[in-house]
Amino acid sequence: MINKMLIRRIHTVFLIFSISMLSAQEAIPTGDELIEKMTAIMSQEASKALIQQVITTSSGRERTFEFEMFTADEGEKTLMRYLKPSAAKGQAFLMLNNADDIWTYFPRTKRVRKLASSSKNQKVQGSDFSYEDLGSGDAWKNEYVSTNLGQEKYAGGDCWKVESIGILEKDPAYPKMIVLVRQSDFYPLSIDYYDDNGNIEKTLILSNIEIVEGIPTALKMQMVNHAEGSATLMKTISITYDWAPPDNFFSERTLRK
């Protein structure tokens, strides 16, 4: 009798333990789920921002630009127009189809030129960002398979560490990325971009994260290029997500304005 009771109690304890384990397992999101949630926050329907960018020139001097940046269709369309310094004023870039098509406008010659499709993976105007880093849209979801590697503390907060491996057939920009996603709101705090040799090529650090119109937004983004020993800082001076692009905004006509 005692034995039976004991066995029953052990069964009960085991059952409770198994259920709790199961529910705990269910609570851990998969890598793809995390990337889905992260890109949902990152890729807002549309935005309009004023950005300051500091690059290092080939002779080691720092050059500061200010440009306005418009995005739509969750980042699939992007338009950047330089405002400062006066030497760059009016020069503009239009990126469509997740930066597969890039046009640039030169105000001094009043001509628009289409850049080669291979430019997608190239650095944007002397910065450590590539066109794809700026206008990747759904690329992360579609071109990578992600795995949740577990929890990690970063910048004083609990994060999920997610590894994304590029699908070769889809020609991803990077063979591998590792992102630390904040558990509280699924916002990324750090992204390591790997090269073909398995080395970390660049690291994007997102900080000064503030809630803008209810959406977490990093006002400071620093891309550290480990291969070249350089870094590019992008500061968001102002941003709004409450902006709807007028008809045919992402067009050559707007580019020329």
Binding site: T56, S59, R61, T109, R111
Partner: peptide, 16 residues
């Protein structure tokens, strides 16, 4: 005009 555009790209690209 072509060289102006090369110069513009070089300027924003930091190619001194």
């Amino acid at each position: 005009e072509n060289i102006i555009e090369i110069q513009d790209l070089a300027y924003i690209g930091g190619q001194d």
